[in-house]
Amino acid sequence: MSAVATPSTESQTARVSAGLAQRRLRKVKEKVIEAILFLAACTAVATTVAIVVILLWESSAFFEHVSIVEFLTDTQWTPLFTEKHFGILPLLSGTLVVAGVALAVAVPLGIIIALYLSEFAPHSVRETVKPFLEMLEGVPTVVYGYFALLFVTPLLQKILPDLPGFNMLSPGIVIGIMIIPYVSSVSEDAMRAVPMAMREGSYAMGATRFQTATRVVLPAAFSGVVASFILGISRAVGETMVVAVAAGQQPNFTWNPMEPAATLTAYIVQVSLGDLPHGSLEYQTIFAAGITLVFLTLGFNVLGHFLRQRFREIY
């Protein structure tokens, strides 16, 4: 006798078929979502690669006329003058001096603020102070530039009468104030991630709250603190408007922060706003300065990566 399909069997088959169809549809949806997320993740990488490729392509035309040895060793940068020199050292020294002054301000203040918010401040104080710190990130940098030129520089001139109107000290201090939120916020997050058991063990050994914060929590969170340093350095090196307004735009090979100088970013702004013809050697100098800035930032980030790995292994 041949088997006859009953209504119950047919309904079970229909349910199984519907379940398989839903499963296939769900897998298709998951694949589509996965592809969208992959493309979104690739966007940042593709943008970075495109920027580097464009800078290398444009700067290669510059290095066809200027040797890399002259570019890296000459102490004069006068591509816009009659007697042309193409040494990047004046712009590089100005950039490093401003960034150094900024870090001298931001690092100690940022660490102190992070220690206080993480280990000593009540919850209400932390929730009040941290948003105000983060508000500093939203202030336009051109405002910081005029703040440095019109307020900080005259204030410093009362202490240092010989300080010129344009100098690297004033914008360096203001940039340091500007990047304090980067250092303090990342450092505080790293300190709060330290397990409470390490603090309790320190208290059990008789350590005070301050000793625990400085000798246990800070070393344990040092990899995150180093990450905040690198973030601050990258922000200071890439700052444009503050130095363009308050540091002067004359390249000057000096390590004295009380003298005027130009930075890599300020020079790029200066040339980009001028009337130099596109494709000229003078115009191509901005791409040479840009690729120098990229490699400088990359070097700081690589150094920070190795420091984080080393201290993570120690602690």
Rank of each mutant, 00 (worst) to 15 (best):
A247N: 09
A247Q: 11
A262E: 07
I286P: 01
V237Q: 07
F295A: 12
A247T: 12
A247K: 11
T285H: 12
V269T: 15
N252A: 07
V245M: 05
G274S: 15
S234P: 04
L231P: 03
I291V: 14
S228G: 13
L293V: 12
L276S: 02
I233K: 08
L264P: 06
H278A: 01
V243S: 08
F287T: 00
P251K: 14
E282P: 03
T265L: 09
T254Y: 14
T240R: 07
E282N: 07
L273W: 01
S272G: 15
S272T: 15
S228Q: 08
A244Q: 12
D275P: 01
V245W: 04
E282H: 06
F253W: 15
I268P: 03
A289I: 10
Q270N: 09
G248M: 10
G279S: 03
P260L: 08
S228T: 06
T254D: 13
V271K: 05
I230Q: 00
M241W: 03
G274L: 03
W255E: 00
V271I: 14
F253M: 14
S272D: 10
S228A: 15
W255H: 02
V226H: 05
L293D: 05
V242R: 09
E282K: 04
H278D: 02
P260I: 12
T240V: 14
V225A: 00
E259T: 15
V271Q: 04
I286W: 07
V243Y: 07
A266R: 08
P260V: 11
M258L: 13
V269D: 01
L231T: 05
P277T: 05
N256C: 03
F287H: 04
A247P: 05
I291W: 01
F295C: 12
I286V: 15
V237M: 05
A289P: 04
A246C: 11
Q270V: 03
S234F: 01
I291K: 01
A247I: 10
I286H: 06
A289H: 11
L276D: 01
V245P: 02
G232N: 10
E239L: 13
V242E: 02
S280W: 03
Y283W: 14
G248K: 14
T254Q: 14
A262S: 15
L296Q: 08
T292V: 10
S228K: 08
Q270C: 02
Q250C: 03
A236E: 00
A262T: 10
I286L: 09
P251M: 14
I291H: 03
N252H: 15
V243K: 10
R235T: 12
T240C: 03
V237Y: 06
